[in-house]
């Protein structure tokens, strides 16, 4: 009896601790392995810098203000492009989801365009708009727009028709029906589309910035290469990863969690 309790009680706390412990151990091992390889001299320092070199590159980058400035440029492009995609995608998704003819025509086109990696728009964007801010924002929009549209479309289409019946019966019409019923009912699927849209936007932004000459995160990667400075390249990569994870965890995580809790989807 006492033994059974002994086994059971520590297991609860261990279960919540061990994943973190394992993770920390894993990264520590990775760090050491990286350092060992760097010290072994298989590759020269400027091609394969150790973790401390990368760390000091990060510190130097932020210290000079260069990284912050680059992050500002990249994030503002992302915000503009993603914001436009959000507005257009919501409207487009609602229209396609509610209208059979648009679904069959525009819907099929968007499904096709979704299959095209958005970087493929870059040559065309540069031909049309030059090596400009607009060209890169265009590519970001092409990255996010279709995912968002299809997410909204799926959400609208999978809405239980009984909600619409009940709402119409209680006098909801036109704009109120869309704003108070159709959109909120579709929210779980819409959030999925928004998340996917953001990853695509972030990827296409980084790809696009590689060929631009103005200061940005992608451009820092490129200048690192030009300077034969792998520690700068790696340090910018780390910064890009951290920003990506942070947006996932700090923005989309809480939104998704609150919707799932509200709807009772966590069980």
């Amino acid at each position: 009896m006492a033994k059974a309790i002994d086994i059971f009680t520590p297991r609860v706390s261990r279960a919540s601790l061990t994943p973190w412990l394992r993770r920390i151990l894993f990264y520590a091992a990775l760090f050491i392995l990286w350092q060992v390889i760097a010290l072994s001299g298989i590759w020269p320092d400027y091609l394969f810098p150790g973790p401390f070199a990368v760390l000091s590159a990060i510190i130097a980058g932020f210290g000079s203000g260069l990284y912050l400035q680059a992050i500002g440029v990249s994030l503002s492009r992302l915000a503009i492009g993603y914001g436009i995609s959000l507005v257009v995608g919501l409207v487009l998704g609602l229209l396609i989801g509610r209208n059979r003819i648009l679904e069959e025509t525009v819907g099929s086109l968007i499904l096709g365009l979704q299959a095209l990696p958005s970087v493929c728009w870059l040559p065309l964007a540069i031909l049309w708009l030059g090596l400009s801010e607009q060209a890169i924002i265009f590519v970001v929009i092409m990255g996010a727009l279709f995912s968002i549209t299809l997410g909204v479309d799926a959400g609208v289409k999978n809405t239980n028709p009984i909600y619409l019946k009940a709402a119409r019966n209680m006098g909801a019409r036109n704009v109120a029906l869309y704003a108070q019923v159709i959109l909120p009912a579709a929210l779980p699927a819409i959030i999925n589309g928004l998340k996917q849209g953001w990853t695509f936007a972030w990827r296409s932004l980084m790809a696009g910035e590689l060929i631009f000459f103005t200061l940005s995160l992608g451009n820092l990667l490129q200048t690192g290469r030009d300077l034969n400075d792998a520690s700068q390249v790696m340090s910018v990569m780390v910064v890009i990863i951290i920003i990506g994870v942070a947006i996932d965890v700090l923005i989309f995580g809480p939104i998704e969690r609150s919707v799932r809790e509200r709807w009772g989807l966590n069980r």
């Binding site: 239980n160 009984i162 019946k165 909120p184 009912a185 919707v259």
Partner: peptide
């Protein structure tokens, strides 16, 4: 199914 709105 009561048809209450789960978002409210």
């Amino acid at each position: 199914e009561a048809a209450l709105f789960p978002w409210l």
